[in-house]
């Protein structure tokens, strides 16, 4: 039996680049040994019929990062919060975490989900993270806590050695994810979110 060589594929910039990579490299050399049911990945999350809020969590690896990593969540806003400014509601969850000035900002815009549907609000949460690994970990963490995906194996960079600010950012991700979880948020794919926000 052939064993994986434990290689790690590079970061790909495009589908074409990745296709060509696998033309010349044996995928067996890059397997981690972690096996998961396909059902935990594909189709595991039913598309919401009418979310009235899309929350986009965007993680920048620096203030100048123009290509932040992001994940989207669909939320049916509870009637008790229907008329409230959700930026304020979410801000309350994050108060006291002592995040630095540039780590979180909010924007909220209205879209329209078609002639028969009401407006769809879009809440964008921007956050700074230390690097690519931290961004990846944070997105996975948010998705897990929000309840839309099964827990994934830690990627290797744990809490040891975290700076105080990294810990605060971690706590902020947890707070946001719990906020989403409490509202039965489900994770949306890029295409789903786009279809809801730009019908």
């Amino acid at each position: 039996m052939k064993r994986s060589k434990g290689l790690v594929a590079p970061a790909f910039q495009s589908d074409d680049e990745e296709f060509e990579f696998w033309e010349t490299h044996d995928v067996e050399d890059y397997l981690t040994g972690e096996k998961v049911p396909l059902s935990s990945i594909i189709g595991a999350v039913p598309a919401p019929t009418s979310p009235d809020l899309v929350v986009t969590l965007r993680l920048r690896r620096g203030i100048e990062d123009r290509a932040p990593l992001s994940r989207h969540f669909g939320v049916a806003v509870p009637s008790t919060e229907a008329d409230r400014d959700l930026r304020v509601v979410l801000q309350r969850e994050l108060s006291g975490l002592k995040l630095d000035h540039y780590s979180v900002r909010y924007t909220s815009t209205d879209a329209h989900a078609g002639a028969s549907a009401g407006p769809v609000r879009h809440l964008v949460v921007d956050m700074l993270v230390g690097d690519d690994v931290a961004a990846h970990e944070a997105l996975d963490l948010a998705a897990q806590i929000a309840g839309s995906r099964p827990p994934a194996r830690p990627t290797g960079s744990g809490s040891a050695g975290r700076t105080a600010m990294a810990t605060r950012r971690h706590n902020a991700i947890v707070a946001i994810a719990k906020w989403l979880h409490d509202r039965d948020a489900i994770e949306l794919g890029e295409h789903q979110a786009d279809a809801i926000l730009h019908p």
């Binding site: 594929a9 790909f12 990745e18 995928v27 890059y30 049911p37 396909l38 690519d132 961004a135 990846h136």
Partner: peptide, 15 residues
Amino acid sequence: LSAREVERVASKTAG
């Protein structure tokens, strides 16, 4: 869709 289990591929592509 015929695969019940899939195996993780190590990649640096984030997200």
